[in-house]
Amino acid sequence: MTGLAAASARPGRALHAPQEDLTQVELVWIEKQIEHWIRFGREVREQVLDRRRRILFFPPGATFALVRWAANEHGTVLSRLDILRAVASGEPCHTLPTVTPGGDILLRVDGWPKVERVLQLIDAVEAIGIDPVDVSPDHWRHVHNRLTAGETPRGYTMQRHRAFLFRRKIGA
């Protein structure tokens, strides 16, 4: 699922953090001009501004993927995908358009071929039964680094995921 319909179809709207601790992501959808959408993520609240704009709210530590695309009369001018970790109030972060206050960038790609490749990798994670929200942040950093270097990233496997969950459980 992609687009605004996909993002609004997600459950889980219970508020887990004070308003000031939530990361806000403004989504815009102007057909064939500007299209921003969440590929994955668990927002805790949504605010509809008008029929083309809305704001999603993510608690600190939440991981989400933001896709931004824009075009003009000559074709596509922007294709970008960012996988971010929402930050707590006062925590250092990177600033990004439409994301307030910003986020910890786990992965950032520009250009449709790389965006498409990351979307395929997200699909592959889902195909093995893992929600991309629950993937190790280190995996997204690995994918970013490998794609930046022009190399093929390692796939995320159930074995890697279990190791990540165990490491997180013991606090390592």
Rank of each mutant, 00 (worst) to 15 (best):
V115A: 02
F40K: 11
H144P: 03
F58N: 02
G111I: 03
D138Y: 14
Q159G: 04
L106V: 14
E126F: 11
R53I: 15
R53Y: 08
I128G: 06
T157I: 10
A124N: 11
H161V: 02
L15Y: 07
R117C: 14
E73G: 06
T157K: 15
F58M: 15
A70M: 12
I130M: 01
R52P: 05
A88F: 00
V48R: 04
G12D: 00
A5K: 03
R162D: 13
G41R: 03
R42G: 09
R68S: 15
E126D: 15
R108V: 01
G129W: 01
T76P: 01
V25D: 10
E116D: 11
G171C: 03
F57G: 07
G111M: 03
M1R: 04
P59N: 07
M1L: 07
L49R: 04
R108I: 01
R117G: 08
A70S: 11
P11H: 06
R168A: 13
G129S: 03
G41S: 08
P113Q: 05
V77Q: 11
R167G: 03
I130F: 00
R52C: 10
G103N: 00
W69M: 12
A70N: 07
R146H: 14
P101K: 00
L27K: 14
Q33F: 12
G90P: 00
M158Y: 09
L121D: 09
I122A: 09
N145R: 06
E31F: 09
D138G: 05
A70T: 08
P101N: 00
E26V: 10
L27T: 13
L119E: 12
T76L: 10
T63G: 14
P113T: 14
W69G: 04
G171Q: 08
V118N: 12
E46D: 13
